[in-house]
């Protein structure tokens, strides 16, 4: 189902009802819970939500409770996109026969269910062109099973499977370019977002649901447990990720990239890293050079995005 794009200008434009209810068992200060909440505030029509295994699913639907006041289905880690594809096509068929009404379909998965385990089903669904929105809430590790590294964990972050110590100073590999991967499927809309820029995120959800084709949003959602910071700082840290250019906010519409926040006076990446225990080891004298390396990667990534933006449509 395609909805007309109606951006909000202020929060009072949103409906009052909480479709993502209280009573869930996600941690106090949980970033992914804010993603779920903002997503359901954003959708103008009640969506059908397909949720891959992950923090959000585990924490919001402990049997016999559910915090989702919309049709919602849990599927295993690897196949949220496949199940969403099936729902979209079944709805199309039934609606064409007048047996049901149409509804937007949203698949939502964490970074484990998206970057790693679900990538094959996502690739299939994007290539087949089903009309749905996939949202990856990225808290940068398998947090609810005990903070194991994923393909989304950034370089240098300590997790239980990339612990910082005498052998390695945190994760040795860089984060996958998820938007790069999904753009390889020529989809009409892909974007990054984070919860501190809630209006931007809400409007991106609305815009994505107005496109006739698969769409994708990658939203950074800090995790108080795994990133090791005070729960009150969840939104502040997601803002710092943008202000240091660590996590650039951009969208790609029909192949044209646009950086949504230009960050005229970027803060040094240290300002972001120092807020989180998972990066604390980088501030030891012997690891300081890694901060420089991270800064270099951040600057190069930004320059790369600017080049793509300037060059015009990539497909």
């Amino acid at each position: 189902m395609t909805l007309e794009y109606k951006p909000i200008t202020k929060l009072s434009d949103l409906p009052e009802e909480n479709l993502f209810t209280s009573g869930h068992r996600l941690c106090a200060g949980c970033g992914p819970a804010i993603v779920a909440r903002l997503t359901l505030l954003a959708t103008q029509e009640k969506p059908i939500v397909v949720n891959a295994t992950g923090c959000l699913e585990v924490g919001s639907t402990l049997y016999p409770y559910s915090s989702w006041k919309v049709p919602w289905v849990h599927v295993t880690f690897e196949n949220a996109a496949a199940v969403a594809s099936g729902i979209v096509e079944a709805l199309n068929k039934l609606a064409s026969e007048g047996k049901t009404k149409e509804a937007p379909v949203i698949a939502i998965g964490g970074d484990g269910g998206t970057f790693d385990i679900g990538i094959q089903a996502i690739s299939g669904a994007l290539e087949r062109g089903h009309k749905f929105l996939y949202i990856c809430y990225d808290n940068e590790a398998y947090q609810n099973t005990g903070i194991q590294r994923s393909g989304a964990t950034p370089f240098g972050a300590a997790t239980t499977t990339s612990p910082a110590g005498r052998v390695i100073p945190g994760k040795q590999e860089r984060k996958k370019d998820l938007i790069g991967i999904v753009l390889g499927h020529h989809i009409p809309y892909a974007a990054t977002a984070t919860i501190a820029y809630y209006r931007d995120y809400i409007n991106k959800v609305r815009k994505a649901l107005s496109y006739n084709g698969p769409t994708f949003i990658h939203v950074l959602a800090p995790c108080t447990l795994g990133w090791r910071y005070d729960p009150s700082k969840t939104v502040e840290i997601s803002r710092l990720a943008v202000e240091t250019k660590f996590f650039p906010i951009y969208e790609v519409e029909n192949g044209s990239l646009k950086i949504n926040f230009r960050v005229p006076k970027p803060k040094p990446v240290e300002e972001y890293l120092k807020t989180q225990g998972r990066f604390a080891h980088l501030f030891k004298p012997e690891n300081r050079h890694l901060i420089e390396e991270i800064q270099k990667n951040v600057d190069e990534n930004w320059a790369r995005l600017e080049r793509i933006e300037k060059a015009g449509p990539i497909f």
């Binding site: 209810t21 068992r25 559910s66 049709p71």
Partner: peptide, 18 residues
């Protein structure tokens, strides 16, 4: 399929975590 009522999360109060 372990079907539960949407929004039944409200039956579980989390205020005592505070």
């Amino acid at each position: 399929g372990a079907v539960v009522k949407g929004g039944s999360g409200l039956l579980y109060k989390t205020g005592n975590w505070r």
